[in-house]
Every structure is written in structure tokens, then in C-alpha cells.
């Protein structure tokens, strides 16, 4: 069984086209779950019902929590779970395409499609795991020197490249995860409110011996960062808090305390810089 789990946060206007695209993305029966973490005044329940999707409400404890709740609500354990934002349109057949890739090697834990921005450009959805050097370099220079080597290494951008490759992590905006691996890793770490829960999942998947594979043969289109556009400053803060949390976990231990301080300082500088410009 293939499951599709999405989290709606005031996403009524995008939910209907999203669910319609999901229905055409596989020839197999799908178990679709809409987790609604902003249910007040939302039409998500009605929309979900019209597509035969199940509907679960959640208090807003973040994206990872919502996805975990959605997966837990599935009756049977799923062979594959598509974790997906609702402001996306899936290409017809794309879920089956990703699954074909995942089934081709039992060591593949997750497969991510090409994610297209609304203007047709490719979003860097499959990246290396942040390390100390790339983390500091990207944090300090991403906004002032766009082609800096640290950012390039981190984003691993190669927009039109059709070659499949292994990635450190895949964007949580859309990825297909092997059900048994999701279970083994206990899903997303819910201590990330948003951002970096996907980085963390990729990191833990890698540590457990599974591959994260970017498969640009399947594509989805981002219709706009819908629910985060509204609260940009708050989201930026969440991004940097999560970045800090991830790097602190990766480089844990007493001896690495000075390093963590440097990373935190770098992220704080970037945060202030960006806020001043947005």
C-alpha cells in the first residue's frame, strides 16, 4: 500500500488541485491523509472527503509532528509513504515513478523528485548534509555572495541534470519514504517546529545505512510557499533555530562546545542580516 500524507495549514485554496494531482500520480490505490493543523474555519475536511482522503486534525506542533500523526493514523503499515506539502502539483504517474526507483534497491530509504518552482526553474531539493565548513560558509555568505563555494556545495545545484544521484537529504516538501524505514527511525523528529526536520531525517537515514536518492525523472511543481509566505519573519527565526538544533546534534559533546558557539553566531548574523533586508 502507498500512503500520501500532507499537512494543511490554512491551505484550502491549494488542497483541491493538489489532491486531484495526487489521484493521477499513481495507478495503484492510495491511502491519502490530510492532517489539518489550522482547522478553525477550514474547508479542508470537506475537500479531503470529496477525494476519498481521510482527515485528521492536529494542534499546530509543526510539520514533522503533523506528518507523524498522519502516518500513525493509517490503518495498515504502508510500503511507501509520500510526505508532501499541499502547495504542490504532482506530475501524472510521478508516485509510481518514484516507487519504481525505490523498489530497485532495498538500501534506498527515500526518493525525492525534481521540485520545480512556479517559474519552471529547479529548486535545490536534494542537498549534501550540512557540515561545519559548508554550514558556516553558507550561513555567512549565501545572501551577499550567491555563488560562494560553500553554498554551491550545500545546495548541490544542477538544475537540468537528469542524472539520478545520492543526496545527503531530500526536501521534506515532497519525498517518498520506505514505510519500514520511517517506522524504524520513528518518523520525523518533532522537536523541529519547521525546517531541518528533513535534514535530520536524511542524516539519521544515512547513519542507519539507507540511501536518499534524488530521481529527477519524476517532477512536482511548487505553486508557491503558501503557508509560510504569510509569516516570513517568524519562519526565518524558525529556520535558524532549527539549523542550530541540527548542527548542535550532529556536533554534540563537550569538546565541540566552542564550535557550536561559532555556528550559532554565524546563524545569528545571517538571521539579522536577512531580517534587515526583508
Amino acid at each position: 500500500m502507498i500512503a500520501v500524507v500532507t499537512v494543511s495549514h490554512g491551505s484550502d485554496d491549494v488542497l483541491q488541485p493538489f489532491l486531484a494531482s495526487v489521484a493521477a500520480a499513481s495507478q495503484h490505490p492510495l491511502s491519502v491523509v490530510v492532517v489539518d493543523n489550522k482547522p478553525e474555519g477550514s474547508a479542508a475536511k470537506t475537500i479531503a472527503a470529496s477525494f476519498g482522503a481521510s482527515y485528521v486534525t492536529d494542534v499546530n506542533r509543526g510539520y514533522g509532528h503533523g506528518i507523524n500523526l498522519g502516518v500513525a493514523s493509517l490503518g495498515d503499515s504502508a510500503d511507501w509513504i509520500l510526505v508532501c506539502n499541499p502547495d504542490l502539483l504532482l506530475e501524472p504517474g510521478s508516485i509510481d515513478w518514484l516507487r519504481g526507483c525505490g523498489e530497485s534497491d532495498s538500501r534506498i530509504g527515500a526518493v525525492g523528485p525534481r521540485i520545480l518552482n512556479a517559474d519552471g526553474t529547479t529548486y535545490a531539493s536534494a542537498r549534501s548534509l550540512p557540515s561545519i565548513r559548508t554550514g558556516i560558509g553558507h550561513a555567512l555568505f549565501a545572501n551577499v555572495w550567491k555563488s560562494n563555494p560553500w553554498t554551491r556545495r550545500y545546495l548541490h545545484v544542477s538544475a537540468a541534470d537528469p542524472h539520478q544521484r545520492d543526496a545527503g537529504w531530500l526536501s521534506g516538501a515532497c519525498l517518498l519514504i520506505r514505510g519500514s524505514v520511517f517506522e524504524q527511525l520513528s518518523g520525523f523528529d518533532e522537536s523541529y517546529f519547521m525546517y531541518f526536520e528533513d535534514v535530520d531525517l536524511g542524516y539519521r537515514m544515512h547513519k542507519a545505512g539507507y540511501r536518499s536518492v534524488y530521481d529527477p525523472g519524476a517532477a512536482v511543481t511548487h505553486t508557491g510557499a503558501h503557508s509560510t509566505q504569510i509569516e516570513s519573519a517568524r519562519m526565518l527565526k524558525a529556520h535558524h533555530e532549527s539549523a542550530n538544533r541540527f548542527l548542535a546534534r550532529k556536533y554534540h559533546g563537550h569538546l565541540l562546545w566552542p564550535l557550536r558557539q561559532v555556528l550559532a553566531a554565524g546563524l545569528a548574523v545571517r538571521s539579522r542580516f536577512q531580517q534587515g533586508h526583508e
Binding site: G100, S104, H163, R165, G217
Partner: peptide, 26 residues
């Protein structure tokens, strides 16, 4: 196209070669 009989594990022995790359396509 990685249909039922295509298997990436068949290529594991050379997967790390810089002379090899893979495209999932039709």
C-alpha cells in the same frame, strides 16, 4: 526505466566509479 526487472543493485559493484552515471528514464 527501472520496471520490475531493472535493479540498481545490479550496478552496486561499480556505483562509485566516476565514469558511471545513472538516469532513471524511459
Amino acid at each position: 526505466a527501472l520496471t520490475y526487472s531493472g535493479n540498481l543493485q545490479n550496478l552496486t559493484p561499480i556505483a562509485d566509479s566516476p565514469r558511471y552515471s545513472f538516469v532513471h528514464g524511459d
